[in-house]
């Protein structure tokens, strides 16, 4: 049995950003496969190639054993696709959008209701509201409902959780776990590292290339090194001072802390003392387990997204 998605040296050349420079991977059936990388690293291009919206300049790929160039019509009937930005009809109601996409795929909403129940139940109370009047989280739930309504065997989600609230994000990921249990293959891109952990495997992407492909624990085991989390009263000055310190290799802002990769032989206590000498108060530096994002920075030399 072939893999759900087979990608072999797939390439697409563009002007400045978004090009794809030959990526290779096989995604298994029922797998949740994550794409992680900064804007312009080629994630959306890969999605558009796989859903047959773009023609590749090199390499080949199949979805459900169907060639993305030759069999594009067959692929379109089987996959679900949710583009990176909200792409439903803003002047139609929630219900009208859902029914329109059901009709487009020749199915009835009632028949596949159980599949979308978990996400759709949240927006059903607003089914007569126009899509333009929904919140970001509700819009994404509606878009996911529309992408799922025809029971696709492979689902392509381009940053489905960007810009939505944490509760909605969690609900969306629960739905993906549900779908996985039902045998649906999911390829999803996300800028959130905590979501990367929920994938079976992730591909770290930069400049149209895969830096590495593995399960999240493997990624950490392979690329993780000693990582310290630091905080003090004045965080932005702390970032500058940490970066300037000779025992610090890299330092990046991570939410309310800075993550420091120390050089060999450095000690958190000495670094803390050095920071206090520079006038920082309430300095805390402690060792933590490295995450996917720390690994990404180590390999790529840049964070996967702007902090």
């Amino acid at each position: 049995m072939t893999a759900a998605i087979e990608i072999d040296a797939l390439a697409k050349h563009f002007g400045a950003t978004g090009a794809l420079n030959g990526v290779t991977v096989n995604v298994e059936r029922g797998e949740i496969f994550g794409l992680i990388g900064p804007d312009g690293s080629g994630k959306s291009t890969l999605f558009r190639l796989l859903v047959t919206l773009l023609l590749p300049d090199g390499g080949r790929a199949t979805v459900e054993g169907l060639d993305i160039v030759k069999d594009f019509l067959k692929i379109r009937a089987r996959v679900g696709y949710m583009p990176g930005r909200f792409s439903l009809y803003p002047d139609l109601t929630v219900e009208e959008n859902l029914h329109l996409f059901a009709t487009l795929f020749g199915v009835r909403v009632e028949d596949n209701r159980p599949l979308i129940q978990r996400v759709y139940s949240h927006i059903e109370p607003f089914r007569r509201r126009r899509a333009s009047a929904l919140s970001g989280g509700m819009k994404q739930k509606l878009a996911l409902s529309c992408a799922l309504i025809h029971r696709p065997s492979v689902l392509f989600l381009d940053e489905p959780t960007t810009g939505i609230d944490p509760v909605s994000r969690a609900e969306l990921w629960e739905t993906l776990a549900d779908l996985k249990r039902q045998g649906v293959t999911v390829m999803v891109s996300t800028p959130y590292m905590d979501e990367a952990r929920l994938c079976d495997r992730v591909a770290l992407m930069q400049s149209g290339r895969f830096l590495d492909v593995a399960s999240p624990p493997e990624i950490v085991a392979r690329h993780g090194t000693t990582t310290w989390a630091a905080r003090a009263e004045r965080m932005s000055k702390l970032l500058t001072d940490l970066r300037a310190h000779p025992t610090v290799e890299t330092c990046y802002a991570f939410g309310d802390r800075h993550h420091v990769t120390p050089r060999p032989g450095a000690s958190p206590l000495l670094l803390r003392a050095a920071m206090e000498t520079l006038g920082h108060r309430q300095v805390e530096i402690s060792e933590i387990l490295p995450g996917i994002e720390d690994c990404f920075i180590r390999i790529a030399g840049q964070p996967p997204r702007e902090p």
Partner: peptide, 13 residues
């Protein structure tokens, strides 16, 4: 422009 063409294209219609 709104991207709906993108979804419509990825359908059997």
């Amino acid at each position: 422009e709104t991207g709906t063409m993108e979804i419509i294209l990825v359908s059997p219609a």
